[in-house]
């Protein structure tokens, strides 16, 4: 039925009964249960009744979602469901667009991010964008250190830092002989890893990824996914993806958004094998979206 047998979904030994029980729960009760579950886990970041607007249009309609520490949370859903808008609210990039605003609460540890200086927030919550966007005027080395340099911070050992972060994204061996070359001279996949390195150099706590592989070919995608797998040891990661196999491969938790609302949020293998909501099942089996 699911058609995801190739995806590495951990089998869960639940009884039939529990599955039925789970499906019988109302969405509200389910959310309540999830809230309890994660309140005991170490939650790095948490959205509470988050709403986002473009002008008068409400595109995120009150979403509450926890992001457990050192885990990958994937956000899936059809185009236009508000996934990108949602994660752009998490580091306050949403409000950069003229006419856009957000309401509700987002906690980073115990700090309300909407009470913080957005500049300080964005150093703690880094972002990787859909299309690789290295700075065209800077070298590869310059791109890695761009966040520090543009903020007027001089690292003690810039070369060491550049090497360390480029090794972290597994790009070092490919570029070590040409660190002075333009960042634009790299392939798309390399550019995206360079952009991830640039984010890592700022030593953030959370990394937001907005469809980081949608402009990449399958080989480059695989490398970025491996990288995400490595990075979760040190960082809390939120990834928006159109690709459900990708969510299944990289994320421990998955949230399904539809029309600006959170339909379902659970462990990834539950979402992909025994979704509680009919709409989730319809989406992941390809009946719509």
């Amino acid at each position: 039925m699911m058609g995801y047998s190739s995806a590495p979904i951990g089998a869960r030994e639940d009884s039939e009964k529990e599955v039925i029980n789970r499906q019988a729960q109302s969405p509200a009760a389910l959310l309540e249960r999830q809230r309890e579950e994660v309140s005991t886990a170490n939650v790095k970041m948490r959205a509470g009744d988050l709403r986002a607007f473009f002008g008068k249009a409400e595109v995120i309609k009150g979403i509450s979602l926890p992001f457990p520490e050192n885990k990958v949370t994937a956000i899936i859903g059809p185009s236009g469901c508000g996934k990108s808008t949602f994660i752009r609210c998490l580091n306050r990039m949403h409000e950069v667009v003229p006419g856009a605003r957000a309401a509700g609460e987002v906690l980073l540890d115990t700090d309300d991010i909407y009470a913080m200086d957005p500049v300080r927030l964005r150093r703690r919550v880094g972002m990787v964008f859909q299309k690789p966007n290295p700075f065209p005027t800077m070298s590869i080395r310059g791109n890695v250190l761009a966040g520090l340099k543009l903020n007027g911070i001089r690292p003690d050992d810039p070369d060491g830092l550049a090497e360390k972060t480029l090794r972290q994204v597994a790009l070092w061996d490919e570029v070590k002989d040409g660190l002075g070359r333009s960042g634009m001279s790299l392939s798309g996949g390399q550019q995206q890893r360079l952009c991830i390195a640039r984010t890592l150099a700022m030593e953030p706590e959370v990394i937001l990824m907005d469809e980081p592989c949608s402009a990449l070919d399958p080989i480059a995608t695989a490398r970025v996914e491996e990288l995400i797998h490595e990075l979760q040891k040190q960082y809390t990661i939120v990834i928006v993806t159109h690709n459900m196999q990708q969510a299944a491969r990289v994320a421990q938790y998955t949230a399904f958004f539809y029309m600006g609302e959170l339909v379902e949020h659970d462990e990834t293998n539950v979402i992909f094998t025994r979704p509680a909501q009919a709409r989730t099942e319809d989406y992941i089996t390809g009946r719509f979206g």
């Binding site: 580091n91 990039m93 950069v96 300080r120 964008f129 966007n133 700075f135 065209p136 761009a146 543009l150």
Partner: peptide, 25 residues
């Protein structure tokens, strides 16, 4: 615009983004 977002996303203040990323480019 992607370059502006890249810089802002790295925690670079707006005036530095305008001066050292947009104008520089």
């Amino acid at each position: 615009e992607a370059l502006r977002e890249a810089a802002l996303g790295l925690g670079v203040p707006q005036w530095r983004t305008t001066l050292w990323v947009m104008l520089r480019t």
